[in-house]
Each structure stands twice: as structure tokens, then as C-alpha cells.
Amino acid sequence: MTEEILKVEHLNKFYGDWQALHDISFNLKKGEVLAILGPSGSGKSTLLRTLNGLENYKNGEIVFHGKKVQPSPKEWQAIRQKIGMVFQSYDLFPNLTVMQNILLAPTKVQKRDRAEVEQEAHHLLKRVNMDQYADTYPRELSGGQQQRVAIVRTLAMKPEVILLDEITASLDPEMVRGIEDIVKKLSENDHMTMILVTHQMNFAKRVADQVLFLEKGRIIEKTPCEQFFTEPQSERAQQFLTDMDF
């Protein structure tokens, strides 16, 4: 029995009168990779951002390690050290070098020993072939390189879960593969628990264990990955895959 790490129960989110998420419930086991798929505007990114406290929600619960998350800025600040997030537009800090970007949160937020984190950062940078750029500023790097650094920046926090929000969407097609490989290895070698939102079905198919299919803010189905792409349960998912040429 693998340990359950994150659980969402009956989550509802509104923007004014408009309901963006309807009664969302699912759970995530340790080491599992969950892909959230669905058409544009289905609420995928909103759901992901909610899991990092970047969006508030009206009712429902987010349970992390069996403990209900209180929706307060303070609590979220603590939880974010365990739930990392990587964004579509990388969002490295332009005023800091690659190394400073990576060191910032572990040394200032987690108050870890600088030398130790630095050593670890070099190790992580080597894994993604970026170690020679440690003292470079983000603006001198390509999109793919920046995204590698952004992943390392999140890994350096030693998170238990990583949220990946369309991390390949802004990249040149030839860069996408490299980023996908990194995510794949994180899953296979490190058994990292991840939730990813993507428009690229191949990416999801390669790395995910489970697929959560969302439409208009509702969960339509949650299916093991292989099955989702071969025989999805719902008609909507079938239609979606046809539309995506899959």
C-alpha cells in the first residue's frame, strides 16, 4: 500500500459569479505522476495553481499528508516548500544569476547551509547539463536552458510534490524533448511525485501514470494513463483525443 500524499475533496472555485472548478475530488499517491488533460479553458491550470495556493477556493478541502491545509498565506508559505511549481514562462529572477536563483529559497526560506546547497545545486545542474552556466544571468540563456534551471530551482527545495504548469508550451519543438526526458528521469530514477498540465499528449503519455480529464471545470474521468489513450471511458475524452489527432 503506497502512501497517499495529496488529497483534494469537493473543491469549488469561483471567479465572481462564474464557477471555474466544480466539486473536484481526487488523490495522489507517493511517486505517482498525474497528468491533468482537457481542452483550453477547462480549468486545468486553475486547478494546478490552487494546489500551490496561488488561487483561493470557495469551499472544499486540500489535504496534504493527511492534514487539512488551512487556506491562509502563512500556511501556504510553509506548504510551498514541500509542493514546488514550475511555470510555462520559466520565470527565473532576471536580477539573479542561475546559481543565485537556485540558492535563494533553500538558504533564505529553508535556512539551509549555503555550501551544502551550493554543492547540491552543482550536482543538479550537472544532471540537466547546465553546470557551466551557474554564473550566467537568465537573459543570456535560451528558453529550454531557462526551463532546465527553473526545474533545478524547484528541485533544490527538496519538494515532495512538483507541479508542472505547461512547462514545454513556450519552447522550441527541439527543446521539448530534452525537458520531457528530465521529467521522465525524475519519475523513474527519483520516484518524484508530480502533477502536470500540458497540451502535448505525447508528453503526458510518456511520463504519466494516471490521467485526470477535465472539461468545463469538472472531472470527467480519472483513468490509468495507458488506458486513457487507448480506450478512454467517456465520450468526451474520446472526442478530445480525436480533436488532438490522437
Binding site: 496561488l54 520565470d91 526560506v109
Partner: peptide, 24 residues
């Protein structure tokens, strides 16, 4: 997005201003 990626790293409001927003 800069603010959000800072928050996602667990920076406090004070740290966010000090290390990310004010320098920029």
C-alpha cells in the same frame, strides 16, 4: 509571474520584496 514564481518557492512577502521585486 515573477511574484508568483517567488511565492511558489515559499518566499515570504518580505523576502519576495527584498530579493525579487525591489531589486528589479
Amino acid at each position: 509571474a515573477q511574484k508568483e514564481s517567488g511565492l511558489a518557492l515559499g518566499l515570504s512577502k518580505m523576502q519576495l520584496f527584498l530579493y525579487v521585486l525591489l531589486p528589479q
